[in-house]
Nucleic acid binder design. Structure first.
Lengths: 183, 183
DNA sequence: TGTTTACGTGTCATTTTTGACATGTCAATC
DNA sequence: GATTGACATGTCAAAAATGACACGTAAACA
């Protein structure tokens, strides 16, 4: 049930196992916040998806309720089986990477507009990526206090690169469109 | 029902309207193939999602069955209302761009492995992005025969940039990990 | 003529994701 | 002492997406 069948899905489960590995034991509430402040860049999940998943994972033996706290708080810890599951997924999963980007979809649809409209949209897009980029760089500057030092570093670096790429692309494409229009 | 509420969702509908705009009238079958060969880079949809959506869109007046052909084939054409919907979405939708990337998720989880394992994985990843990059560049070289010349050009360019970025990132990160391990 | 392949449309069960609703506790501030 | 806000967990309906099943037609080729 858990050892095979790694195609499609599983991502939420794996992400949670990863967070538990690096942050140590945590509650659903903690994990929801952690999700938002770290991995959110690449994957989103609300508490309404996280809580049921944690219960299923506990039922499957991948995590355990290590401690029950004040407000019905349940602190989960990863089990050996859970750690093994994460490891296996990382190492054995094939090269298919699910990917969805509304930004790229928009890029695709842009030529359905008038050139001047498309260019204006791209300028706005570039500005918005600029803001995002500043935020990410602020996070990088403030980085600290992870159980495993430097954790999230690689992903953050990748996120910054990707955001910068989008900004550059939007700017350059706007310029290209404006240039070919003016002729 | 159709003019407001552009938050979350809608993407499939918009993508189909875009494809109908640039390719001219097409059947569900055509659109499925078109999806795979163009926009697939940024968004995926199977025929089992596309066919029902086309029926709903026709019911909403965004597209019409322009012609019925041989094998029960239904050729759809975009209506003025549909064109307006696409345009409005592109211009008025806020800056929230849904984004999901299993590749970045993996990047995040990488530090849970031993350095040498992570590095090896990254090398494999880089190689796989190299293959993908070659494919995309072959497509760019072969580009032709769109109703609107240059259509898909911007998105393809963006796709190539992103793939190259992933390749570079994987390679550089592998080198970084190997470097800091050796000390 | 027979068989395979591409064409072509659909449904259905299941999983994943979203957004709203629901409920209650503990700590700090006023 | 009362109110507010962060803490904390859940459920549920609906939408989006996946993968399998199901059916049938036209054309190519052997």
């Amino acid at each position: 049930m858990s050892i095979d069948n790694y195609d499609g899905g599983m991502s939420l489960r794996i992400a949670l196992l990863g967070l538990l590995t690096v942050s140590g034991p945590a509650s659903g509430y903690d994990l929801t916040k952690l999700f938002e402040s770290s991995i959110n860049n690449a994957w989103q999940a609300r508490h309404s998806q996280i809580y049921p998943e944690l219960n299923k994972m506990a039922a499957d033996g991948l995590i355990t309720v290590e401690e029950e706290g004040p407000r019905g708080r349940k602190t989960y810890a990863i089990t050996d089986e859970g750690a093994h599951e994460l490891r296996t997924w990382l190492i054995e999963k094939g090269p298919t990477r699910s990917y969805r980007s509304e930004g790229v979809l928009r890029a695709f649809l842009l030529p359905t507009l008038e050139p001047h409209e498309a260019a204006a949209l791209l300028r706005a897009e570039a500005a918005s990526y600029g803001v995002r980029l500043a935020e990410l760089e602020a996070i990088r500057a403030a980085k600290s206090s992870w159980k495993e030092p430097g954790f999230g570093h690689y992903a953050l670096d990748l996120g910054i690169r990707q955001t910068r790429l989008m900004q550059d692309w939007a700017e350059e494409t706007a310029a290209e469109i404006e240039g070919s229009t003016r002729s």
